[in-house]
Design a protein around this nucleic acid. Sequence first.
DNA 1: GTCTATATGTTGATAGAC
DNA 2: GTCTATCAACATATAGAC
Lengths: 185, 185
Amino acid sequence: MPRASDKRERLIRSADHLILRQGFKQTTLSDIARDSGVPLGNVYYYFKTKDDIGHTVVRSRVAAMQALLDRYAIHEDPKRQLIEFLRFPLQIRDDLARNGCPLGTLAYELSRPDSQFREDSRELLQVVLDWSTTRFEAIDPDQGADLALQFVATLQGMSLVANALDDPQVVERLVERLRAWIESL
Amino acid sequence: MPRASDKRERLIRSADHLILRQGFKQTTLSDIARDSGVPLGNVYYYFKTKDDIGHTVVRSRVAAMQALLDRYAIHEDPKRQLIEFLRFPLQIRDDLARNGCPLGTLAYELSRPDSQFREDSRELLQVVLDWSTTRFEAIDPDQGADLALQFVATLQGMSLVANALDDPQVVERLVERLRAWIESL
DNA sequence: GTCTATATGTTGATAGAC
DNA sequence: GTCTATCAACATATAGAC
């Protein structure tokens, strides 16, 4: 059994990178081919259509975020898990200001009413919402769902505003407010 | 002096409508021409380029939001102004779930690093941020700027999440939380 | 000012040699 | 599996008659 080439993986990495910076619609197969070093015509050996690439990038981002979230499950205190998680957006605040949230930008672009990507859009946010809901419900069983909703909405709005204003300090200021808010619960 | 035709206005209205539902990049000049009833070739008599239409739609949305915000200035109490304003997203919650926020979706799509729309993107959010900052500073001069930032971020995140989950109830739940939050200040 | 016809470039996708 | 060449459709934009 021959070792599979790494071309498919390279294509996904390039697509993910380019879609983050340019959006899905704006990113052409030619862009992806050039960036990955795979000839244009060869892309279709690995992906049936461009939309197929889109779905794959969505699954890749959801899986990456799920893996990241799982890492914070080592702390016992749910408050601690949530606060530790806030270090992540803070770490990548320059990228968030430049390109927006990898989940939120794609979810917003793909959630058009007639789109075949509506389910993908939902999954991109659901992964964080589910994780947050579990933690907030451990803190306050009655309001858990609403608290998680506010948490995720604030994070997403934070990235959108930071990106629109091109200002990483927006992330700093709102992460600090979120931290104080969680500790006050 | 002949009465100007309404074609330019019709083009802007169609563009605004289509961009809200499909995004700017996805919306073609052919789409706009068909929807407005103006022949494709004639579009270029009113707008030099497609980007020109984009800029015009941005200015139109900013102006519309500014006009809306001015209407809430009739109340004396700044808390009251902010709470009354929350009736707006609640009223259009079905549209927000379907298409997202007219300011946020466009700001997020146009704020790419190399884009010539970066300033437009900033203005789309700044109009609400400035208005909110004035009100929150009247409530709490020290934290006014941060409170306004949290307010706008939550509103934007609310629309993004409602749109991704295709659920107007997200708007209902978060508007209620925002209302309670403002009253607690 | 208005419209038809069309130029020009780009994009997603395919054919077929190797 | 890999790559070159290319098609067919679509997009922005222009030319030029009326």
